[in-house]
Every structure is written in structure tokens, then in C-alpha cells.
Amino acid sequence: MDSKQLYQEVILDHNRKPRNYGRLEHPTQSSEGLNPLCGDHIWLHVHLDGDRIDGIAFEGQSCAICKASASMMTAAVKGKSVAEAEALVDAFRGMVTGTVDPATPGNPIGRLAVFAGVKDLPSRVKCAVLPWHTLHAALDAQAVASTEGDQDPMGTAG
């Protein structure tokens, strides 16, 4: 893995100009995501209209991989149903941990495939996956998601 493949223009662009960055006025759910090992720390706010994500925003302090991942995630799940968003969470986690081939027919990963290279940088998997943990936690009405300990939904991810 050449990390230059990872730090490509699309990721650098989302890091520079993150989409959906900030807060929602009346979120129906919010969750805090924390990677205690590297200090990535984000807050995710979601507005559900019935079963549909009609508003989503994030804020926080994180590395470029985490911020770009959060930015592209919010863009990807906005307007989707909870079930569609959860399917994307699974697809993303599977891709960056190397357990699911993003090229499998029917895989919903789409443009998020730019993060595929993360799976070859074990120390950075958690950076990419943190926003997705946090989204899963928010949709599940959990207050906190962490890449470590009891709150790590993937066990010993990364």
C-alpha cells in the first residue's frame, strides 16, 4: 500500500472542505465518537424523519482520514433509510477491515471505495471507521461510540 494512494485528491478535498460540518438545530439523535489511542473525537448529529435520515452533521477534532470519512459518510447517508445506512456501515467496516470485498455485486460502497487502501494501514483503520461506529451508535440511540474497550462494536478492530 502506497499511502499516496490513500491521500488522494478526493480525501484531501473532504478534509479541507468537510461536507455537513457543524450542528443540526433539532437533532433526533446525537452520538459522540472517540478514539482514545490517537485522540480522534467527533460528534455526530442526526435528524430522523420517520425511518429516513433527512438531516446529518458532524463536528470535532480528528485526522484527515477520519474527517474525510465522516464528511463522505454524511453525504452518502443523507436521505437514506436507517436500514440502507446500516447496510453501508457494514459495507464500510467490511471493506476497511478486509473482510468484505467492495467489488462484490450489490455492495453499496460506491465512491467510498477510495478508503479501500486503509485496510493495508492497520494503525489507521480505526481513524476511518470511527465516524461509522458513531453513526451506528446514533441510529441505535447510544450516546458514545469508541474504537476501544466495551464500546467497540467490532471487538478488537484494527
Binding site: C38, A64, I65
Partner: peptide, 19 residues
């Protein structure tokens, strides 16, 4: 972020601690 710095420095063969 230092983690991005660490990954990119490693790419050049330079091992530093980040965190």
C-alpha cells in the same frame, strides 16, 4: 493531524512516534 504526518513520513522511510 499528527497521525496523517506519521503515515506520510513512514512513506518516506522516516519512523517517528505520533500520538
Amino acid at each position: 493531524h499528527p497521525h496523517d504526518v506519521g503515515t506520510l513520513l513512514d512513506e518516506e522511510g522516516v519512523a517517528v512516534r505520533t500520538g
